[in-house]
């Protein structure tokens, strides 16, 4: 990763440069605030370690100028300072600094703080990537963006409920809840590869057309799996792949594309199945009216142990008030409850 050191003091600069270069960073140097700002305008640097006291533009002034820029991405700023008053800290944060390190700094602390900055930047990158993929899927889908908002919210409600159940302790935690909220909008990304004649058909699909439509689960999973192979160890890609691949599987093994059954279906896919079906039932389509919550509820209860994981149906029943709230909050073309 490329980062910028902004410091006019050669002693401090020598130490900062050596420490960060050895930690594997591609380091650029600016010897005053104006030079730093010029380099940052290029948009190629995402992290700055800046001295507070600098000629032309101080570290705090650099922060303010940076936050005023119409920059393509967020730049993470660590201010290096000998000031230890809370007033100085507040002034730095108010100007747009993200973190501080006190002079004289320890190498290990500096590297730890830079790594923390990298993690935060990578979260932003992750969210942008997911958003871009979800928007792409949405652009090919006759359903609206509100469908994605509802479905991700239903998934979060179900996952949160499971996180409170002893049976799911250790499997569903806060990170799982965050990831399913983040990745569930990608469940139908494979629809990008379905021909318009099938995807946009305003009526019931023939058997042959339905077979084509079913391919979206496999295509979405393949796309996300390729990304997961290229970037191993990225949890959101793995969960996104699971959901895309398995949200049409059924508990009794009669679903598609793989005919998985029971707990061999990943939990994220089982959660998505309930959320997606509930939303499909309660949404109006060109070829059907929206069902009421009560009708959808009874269909989901009927599907317990056949279509759906019984634990998920129980979670749905415990959380049905939240489902109704979400349906109303993001509703359009909804049937009265």
């Amino acid at each position: 990763m490329k980062l910028l050191i902004a410091d006019d003091n050669e002693v401090s600069l020598t130490l900062l440069h050596a420490t960060l270069s050895r930690a594997g960073y591609d380091v650029e140097v600016a010897r005053d605030g104006e030079e730093a700002l010029t380099r940052l305008r290029s948009g190629k640097i995402r992290l700055v370690v800046s001295d507070w006291e600098m000629p032309k533009l101080s570290g705090v002034e650099l922060c303010r100028a940076l936050r005023g820029l119409d920059a393509p991405g967020y730049v993470y700023v660590i201010l290096v300072t000998g000031r230890d008053s809370s007033a100085a800290t507040v002034e730095g944060f108010a100007a747009g600094a993200d973190d501080f390190i006190r002079k004289p700094f320890e190498a290990t602390e500096l590297i730890a703080r830079v790594r923390a900055g990298e993690r935060i930047l990578s979260l932003e990158t992750r969210d942008v990537a997911i958003f871009a993929m979800a928007k792409l899927a949405e652009s090919r889908d006759p359903e609206t963006g509100a469908h994605l908002e509802r479905v991700r919210s239903y998934c979060r409600v179900l996952a949160r409920d499971l996180s409170q159940q002893p049976r799911f302790a250790g499997r569903v935690d806060g990170e799982f809840v965050r990831l399913i909220y983040l990745t569930s909008p990608l469940h139908d990304i494979g629809k990008v590869g379905i021909p318009d004649g099938v995807l946009l058909k305003p009526g019931r699909l023939s058997d042959r057309e339905f077979e084509i439509m079913k391919m979206h689960a496999r295509m979405g999973a393949d796309t996300l799996e390729a990304a997961a192979r290229a970037f191993p160890g990225v949890p959101f890609l793995e969960m996104a792949r699971e959901i895309a691949a398995t949200h049409h599987e059924r508990w009794d093994g009669t679903g598609y594309p793989s005919g998985l059954s029971g707990e061999s279906i990943p939990l994220s896919g089982r959660i998505m199945a309930v959320a997606d079906v509930y939303d499909a039932l309660t949404s109006a389509r060109v070829y059907k009216a929206a069902m009421t919550h009560e009708v959808a509820r009874s269909l989901i209860v009927d599907g317990s142990g056949t279509h759906f994981d019984p634990d998920l149906v129980e979670a749905f029943l415990r959380q049905e008030e939240h489902f109704l709230e979400i349906s109303r909050a993001f509703g359009e073309g909804r049937a009265a409850a």
Partner: peptide, 12 residues
């Protein structure tokens, strides 16, 4: 003096 103080601290 502020700059020298910081440099001296960095160099122990």
């Amino acid at each position: 003096l502020h700059g020298l103080k910081g440099a001296a601290a960095s160099a122990s």
